Simulated scan of single mutants.
Amino acid sequence: MSEEFEIRNKIAESGFVNFDLSTLIPKGIRKGIDLKDFLFQEMILKEKDFREKVDAIDAEEYKDAYIYIYNSVDTIVPLWAYFVLTAKLTDVAKKIVFGDREDLEVILMHNAVQTYDFEDMRGKRVLVKGCSDKEIPENAYIELVEQLKPMVKSLMFGEACSNVPIVKN
């Protein structure tokens, strides 16, 4: 085949470092605990009853899980109740947060982005993958830009064939 008809992969030759933020999503089971299940008539926190229900939890069911504690009923729960529940599970769970599943994912991705070593991207042209089959909190993209902007030659978002320039240093 002559050189004028040679097929070249211009994307591979571009020198982009492709980065898929979904690779930072921590793997593991997510479990929610609704405080209403620990309340008397799902409305009132009685300390003795609450402590008995917390003591009855099989902590092994939460081993290596990411746990989010939430309250689906409109009732006031004293802060110490979260302490008691967290103390029961903190030795077995990977992470415990207050909030819904979305709050948990934001915190997990925050931790992942803040602790990831981006040094191999220093001075390079980085393309952050735009499409993912996994849900990624928007805040993770913001934090990623904060981490990469000072160190990369350029930062783009999207796909190699169609990307949006974000930063050029």
Rank of each mutant, 00 (worst) to 15 (best):
K94E: 14
E47G: 01
F19Q: 01
V167Q: 09
A81R: 01
Y66W: 00
E138M: 10
R8Y: 03
R101P: 11
D58Q: 12
P137S: 04
D91C: 02
I69A: 11
P78E: 10
K31I: 13
F50P: 07
L89S: 05
C161E: 05
A93W: 05
G158N: 09
Q41M: 12
M43S: 13
A12C: 11
I57C: 03
L21C: 08
T86G: 10
V164A: 02
T90C: 13
E4F: 11
Y66V: 00
T75L: 02
D100W: 07
I11H: 11
N18K: 12
I7F: 07
E42V: 00
K94Q: 03
E146L: 14
T86Y: 11
E146I: 10
V126Q: 06
I7Y: 12
E105I: 14
K95W: 10
L79S: 15
K10P: 02
C161I: 07
F19S: 00
M1E: 00
N169M: 00
K46Q: 13
C131Y: 11
R125Y: 11
M156G: 10
Q114I: 14
K134N: 12
Y68L: 06
L35H: 09
R30P: 04
Y116F: 15
D120Q: 08
V128D: 09
D103F: 07
I136S: 01
L35T: 12
E146K: 14
K48R: 10
R101G: 10
L79G: 15
K149F: 10
V73N: 09
V17Q: 14
K95Y: 14
R125F: 00
I136H: 11
F5G: 01
K149V: 14
A81H: 05
G130V: 06
I44W: 05
M156R: 15
V167E: 13
L127H: 04
F40I: 07
Y66G: 02
V92F: 15
C161P: 00
F50C: 06
I44K: 09
L148R: 06
E42L: 06
G123Y: 06
E102S: 08
W80I: 13
N18I: 12
V167M: 05
I67P: 07
Y82C: 01
K31M: 10
A81G: 03
R8V: 15
S72C: 10
F38E: 00
E47S: 09
Y116W: 11
K53W: 05
V106F: 04
N111D: 15
P150N: 08
D100M: 01
F40N: 00
P78A: 06
V77C: 09
K36G: 06
F83L: 12
